[in-house]
Design a protein around this nucleic acid. Structure first.
Lengths: 147, 147
DNA sequence: TCTTGACCTAAAGTTAGGTTTAGGCTTTAT
DNA sequence: ATAAAGCCTAAACCTAACTTTAGGTCAAGA
């Protein structure tokens, strides 16, 4: 069993955030001893899931819903399964988008490196939009492709 | 040249958002004809960069700074290069984190699929934390690894 | 000419996700 | 026994990034 301060340390989250999550119902059944929160291994796993779902872009009220399902029992397995499958699809899309973002950033890094060498953007403006070196052209095209 | 409504259509962004960006100084030198905004090809490219930088997690005030550098000229090439290199590092870290998130989600999908077949989590609780099928164990370990 | 649709501004409002404050218990080490 | 550290709550506050509102301008078609 852990105190809120220990959990805060372990997860690198402010104590105020943990209390906020608790207030929002993200730790149903969290134990208390004379008013003081005692986090069990189960609560830590819940917190890991919270962090995962948050990263996947889920809102707090929906995470609360998930935690409520966990309390409700096996009848909610289908709901929970659906939730994770939906999140999986969303994160896969997000990853693709972020990869595209990364290509744009890589292109821009090359762009300013070149501009810095040349002292201006004149040559770059001539190369654009399709006379770039092959590797760079790939980045540029990918970054400018329609979603 | 495009009207704000056309740009809104093209980028799938609300008109109010485009006006907000303009108010925040993200389109320096945006042309107007009797008060009405006319977006040039240059402004569209700016908007593409804005979307990219936003996805990379940059705040509006810092995007504004970047746009100001673009107006300022070649003396700011080093600043702009540094900005993109920093963003690139951040997005690469973000991608790694999101990949880990995805592994957790994949694990949870498998978990609830199994729980649904079994009708309970008893067998799963026995398999955890290190008696899982190899492929699944990999997902689980990766998702639970320290940052 | 009149009406419709698209544009404009300034300013107030909204939302999510916390954080801070003020005042007060509890536990632990000396 | 007492003081410091760590815990508690309720409620106010904060910030970013928009969005909405209210009131008005402008240009084109019937």
């Amino acid at each position: 069993m852990y105190t809120i301060g220990q959990v805060s340390e372990m997860f690198g989250l402010p104590i105020s955030t943990l209390r906020f999550y608790d207030r929002e119902g993200l730790f149903p059944g969290l134990e208390r001893k004379s008013g003081i929160r005692r986090f069990s291994e189960r609560d830590l796993e819940a917190l890991r899931v919270i962090e995962c779902l948050k990263l996947s872009g889920l809102e707090i009220r929906d995470i609360k819903q998930f935690m409520a399902w966990c309390v409700e029992g096996p009848s909610t397995y289908p709901d929970r399964k659906r939730l994770f499958e939906a999140r999986k699809a969303i994160v896969e899309a997000e990853l693709a988008k972020l990869q595209k973002t990364l290509d744009m950033l890589k292109f821009k890094c090359w762009y300013y490196e070149t501009a810095l060498k040349d002292g201006n953007e004149d040559r770059l403006n001539e190369l654009l939009p399709d006379g770039l070196p092959p590797q760079i052209q790939k980045l540029y095209d990918n970054a400018h492709a329609q979603a």
